[in-house]
Every structure is written in C-alpha cells, then in structure tokens.
Design a binder for these strands. Structure first.
Lengths: 152, 152
DNA sequence: CAACATTAAATCGTGCACAATTTAATTGCA
DNA sequence: TGCAATTAAATTGTGCACGATTTAATGTTG
C-alpha cells in the first residue's frame, strides 16, 4: 500500500525535468505582460539583467553567465541593438570579440525594471526564504548536470 | 556585513526564474545524447511519456497535461507521425478533435526508453528523496504562477 | 431551424535554443 | 618569421513556444 509503484516512473508529473520545463514556461507567462511594457522578451530581459550587473561585456562573457552561445546570443543582441538598448562594437584590443554596451536608453530602462522582481515574487506565492532555498537547490542541480555533460 | 544588499536583487544568479531557465537548458543537454538514440527531441519525448501513460488522447488533452497548445503541438505531433511513432486521426464522435495513437513502433520505443530515467537521475546527482521534494516544490510553484496568470 | 457563440485544430509570423559549419583574428611554436 | 592550432562571432538549418488569426464542427438560443 505504498505510493511508489513501477508505474509512477512513467507519470509525467513525477518527472523532475518536466516540472522544471513547465515551471520555466509558467515563468515566461507571468513575465510576459510586465516585459511587454519594457519592450523586452524574457531572454532579452535576462541579458539586460546581466548587463545592468556589469556593462561592456563580450558576447562570450554574457554567454558564460547565461549558459548560451553566440548562435543564440548574436541575433538576440542584434535585436536589442535594433531596439536601441545596447550597442555592439568589435573590441579594438582583440578584434575577434564583440563588446556589448548599454545605451542611455538601456541604462534608464533599469529604473523601469525595478518593479518587476517584486511583482514576480508575489506571483510565485513564495516567501523569500523558500525562494532562496529553491534557487540554491536549482543552481546546484544545474551545475551538477553541466558537470555530468562535460564528463562524457 | 550581512549578505543581502540591494544589489543582490540584480544578480542574475539570485533570480529564481534564471535558475529554472538554466536548469531547463541543462536538462535538455543531458537528455540530448540519450534521446538521439531513440530518434526523439526532448519535447517529443515528454509527449511520448504522456502517450505511454495514456494512449489515444486528443491534442487538447495532451496540451492540458503539457501546458501547451495546438500551435506548438500540431507541428510536433506531425513530426512524431512522420517518424512513425504515432498516428493522428479525426475523432468520428467529434470531428473537431484529433486523436493521437501510438503505433507499434511507438509502443516498442517505450521499452528502449526504460533506461533513460535512471541515467538522468544519476546525472542530476540527487538522491530520490531530494528529487521528489524538489519536484513537489516546482509543481507547486508552477501551479501557483499559472493561478496568478489566470487571476488577471 | 437559423443565427450566433463556443470549441478544437491548424496556420502564420516572431523569437529563442542549439548542432554544425564558416570566417576572421590571435596565439603558439617549430 | 611563418604556419598550424586556437579562439570569438556569425551563419545556417531545424525544432520548439506562443500570440494572433483562421477554418471547421458542434452547441445554444430565440
């Protein structure tokens, strides 16, 4: 009469990967209306957060923080540039790399974006401590999985 | 001297959404080589799990379980059909809906897919109990966020 | 039963992700 | 010095996600 039968392994809801997958989509959905007002998509917003944290980063540096590569970032950054939030420019020190810098508009956007995180936290229904714990657990999980990938 | 300054709110790593986002990508990466052997993408695999759990579902039913809609599922299911894993057929009872059924190949694939979950669990580095707890917390989070979306 | 509303898929356009490849600059070392 | 290896972005092609709209079948109501 215990709850764990062999069938449980095939229940979608029992897949940790599916919970991460569907929670990711749910985040996307709650961010959407808030980010629409800023003129950003969800991944663009995350890149902007990385740039507000440290301006004038190379594509490679942004990629390391975001776990993304140039094939994803280049078009995304071009859109941010087309929308006037950043400027992309080859690094004179090393012409292979491209430096991404915030425009004035991009810097000002940070102020408007201040309201977003509290709104999201409220929508999650989590208290700060639980959110922190979950965050820590998920970072550990991600790092462990990335380490597994590299091992093979 | 405490660890929580105002700046912490702008650190990418302190964003719960980013941890979910990047953990999702990490899952994708560890699943990739295993699913390549089955001839499935990661979202296709999740749909197959839903069908192994319950065959002969409508697109709508699959969508409810996956939190996806026909604009995502229709092309995905067509690819599964093109690859011989499922058959799509209008429901004679209600010609609006489309029934998705596993082919023999699709059913047999389930056996080959048995090895996947234990491999993934190992790559996560989590013990079963921690994985279950995380899973439960993430489902709660997702459901809470979805409820927030609908409220507005 | 006829007009209207609702429902289920499909279609279309945009923007991620990512594998594989290409282009160009820099580094290293024979 | 010169040339192969390495590195950084960009490009190309495929497959999700998702908003908005369309098409077609079913329900509902006067």
């Amino acid at each position: 009469m215990n709850g764990s039968s062999k069938d449980d392994l095939l229940q979608l809801e029992n897949f940790l990967c599916f919970s991460v997958y569907s929670a990711g989509h749910a985040f996307n959905r709650i961010y959407k209306p808030l980010l629409d007002e800023l003129g950003l998509t969800y991944p663009q917003y995350l890149v902007m957060v990385a740039l507000w944290q440290e301006d004038n980063q190379s594509v490679r540096s942004i990629g390391e923080k975001m776990y993304l590569e140039s094939n994803t970032l280049t078009p995304l950054l071009k859109r941010l540039e087309a929308n006037g939030f950043v400027v992309r420019k080859r690094d004179p020190e090393d012409e292979r790399s491209v430096r991404v810098r915030l425009t004035e508009v991009g810097k000002v956007l940070r102020e408007k974006a201040q309201d977003v995180p509290p709104c999201i936290l409220e929508a999650t229904g989590l208290d700060t401590e639980t959110a922190k714990r979950l965050n820590r657990d998920l970072r550990t999980l991600r790092d462990q999985m990335d380490a597994s990938v590299k091992k093979l």
